[in-house]
Computed example of a mutant assay.
Amino acid sequence: MYNQQPNGLTWFKSTHSGGDGGECVEVATDGTAIRVRDSKELGGPQISFTPSAWTGFVVDLGRDRI
């Protein structure tokens, strides 16, 4: 789901993101949703997750893949 960019959010970039301007995403929360955007498209579209969907997403990322 894409949303209009809310004002006043504090965006965070992963510590694993390089400083060379490569492919990165940023994450912010407004208290009701976790928002993700492309760090190169600051005014572009965002995808938002409910807190429980975000938790499931992050947990799934941490699982070992065969």
Results as ranks from 00 to 15, higher is better:
C24G: 11
V27K: 07
E41L: 13
R35Y: 01
H16G: 10
F49H: 10
T29C: 04
T29K: 01
W54L: 02
S52A: 10
G44M: 04
S48R: 09
L42A: 05
L61E: 09
G62S: 11
G56T: 06
S14K: 13
G31M: 01
S48N: 06
W54H: 02
G21V: 05
V58M: 15
T29A: 04
T15L: 14
T50I: 02
V59N: 15
V58R: 14
D60A: 15
A53Q: 13
G31C: 03
T55S: 14
T15H: 14
C24Q: 12
A33P: 02
V27S: 05
V27W: 05
I34W: 04
T55G: 10
T29G: 08
C24F: 13
V25E: 15
R37C: 00
V36Q: 05
S52D: 12
I47Y: 01
F49I: 05
A28C: 10
L42R: 07
P45N: 07
S52C: 00
T50L: 08
W54Q: 05
G18T: 03
G22C: 09
D30N: 15
T32M: 13
G31L: 02
R37K: 03
F57Q: 13
F49V: 04
T15M: 11
A28K: 10
W54N: 03
F57K: 13
F57I: 10
G31F: 02
G19T: 09
V58S: 14
V25K: 14
E26W: 09
R37V: 00
G22L: 07
G44D: 05
L42T: 04
Q46H: 04
E41M: 10
G21N: 13
S17M: 09
G19N: 04
G31I: 04
L61C: 15
V27A: 06
T55M: 12
G44R: 03
